[in-house]
Design a protein around this nucleic acid. Structure first.
Lengths: 201, 201
DNA sequence: CTCCAATCTTGACAACGGCAAGATCAGAAC
DNA sequence: GTTCTGATCTTGCCGTTGTCAAGATTGGAG
């Protein structure tokens, strides 16, 4: 009996499947991330993932939870590193994460493929939201405006990130002299218009 | 020979398929919008749509083009009706369209399922972008800041719309006394913070 | 040593996108 | 009026997917 063949029990298949799923997501995109593809990548039978994650949305949701955990950590880290203006730092971190990991970012905000009832996903997403809302403080305003003050920077960064990684800004970028190389400058000008508008007026 | 049975040639199948596709999109969402479902809804064989649209992305793209045409018209109409502040009016129209037609809006910005090479889609999307950028004018600024000035309101409205229809703001809305009924007020406070911040300070 | 529950495999099913081949039909050509 | 041609639609098939049911395997409790 050559023990060469993989043992029947993998041992840490759940983690392996998550790693395999992330590899596929980064290599081939969200469309190629199927239950069977993850099983192939991990070297197990096609039905193995269903045991650990229930269904496809389960696998995607657990992977998105991992993404939200990293995302939240990166936001907090950026805010902590720039105490002078944590909100702006988180805006850059927000868009930076989306550009560095477009597949993961896309997955994290694709509500139709996720199961928000999953505790891990819900917790990780809530934690990221907490990091965001902690930086935007206007305690003297009424509740509605306080909430709006927290949502507005989020919406701005999110909209910019989504439009960027969807390639929706590609035609607009051609208007710039530097072409696509000016993306960083454009992001800065959108997220912090005051900073750049005054040095040229 | 009872002419009861549908004639072999439909006559206006392309339009019927687009209408069927839109009905499915609004009734069951984007995930249920398949080539075969559209064929069933239109009462033709499962392979008929491929003749008119090539593949699934073709059907989705042509439908998205219809959506972009309406979207652009609505943006222009809103701007024209509010000459005092066309940019803010278009922001409201932007979010309003997304909330009124979440399925169509989702489709329009799902780059992975669309074929942007399609002339109809490209033209309709460009027209909508033209409407948006026409309202944001700061001609005295350098190119980068001019572009950023046009993109920022777009990103803000887009981010707010996406977060709203994805249900991502649901937990935040619970902090408001009126619950989900305050969405309109929240949208106004996010899109035009100056307006509402001053009347309570 | 026995047994059990967790883990993984095998096999099946319906639905899907896509392709190829054929059927049907309106209208042009003559 | 007949023939032909091209556009339109159908039928049939293939490979892939998610999901389920049933069975095989095995580490570890008793």
């Amino acid at each position: 009996m050559p023990a060469r063949s993989r043992p029947y029990h993998h041992g840490a298949l759940r983690q392996s499947l998550l790693a395999a799923a992330e590899a596929i997501l980064e290599r081939e995109g969200l469309a190629a991330l199927t239950l069977r593809a993850a099983a192939r990548e991990a070297g197990v039978s096609h039905a193995a993932p269903a045991y650990h994650f229930g269904d496809l949305s389960g696998l995607l949701s657990e992977l998105a939870a991992v993404g939200f955990a990293r995302f939240g950590a990166r936001l907090r880290s950026a805010a902590a590193a720039t105490p002078a203006d944590p909100l702006r730092a988180m805006g850059f971190a927000y868009v930076g994460f989306a550009r560095a990991h477009p597949g993961m970012f896309t997955l994290m905000f694709r509500a139709d493929r996720l199961n928000m009832q999953r505790p891990a996903l819900r917790a990780a997403a809530d934690a990221a939201w907490q990091a965001l809302s902690a930086a935007a403080g206007a305690a003297d305003a009424p509740p509605l405006n306080r909430l709006a003050g927290r949502i507005a920077p989020w919406a701005l960064a999110h909209g910019l990130a989504v439009l960027l990684i969807d390639g929706r800004l590609q035609p607009a970028l051609h208007e710039l002299p530097g072409g696509a190389r000016d993306i960083d400058a454009l992001v800065a000008a959108v997220l912090a218009p005051d900073q750049n508008a005054s040095d040229t007026a």
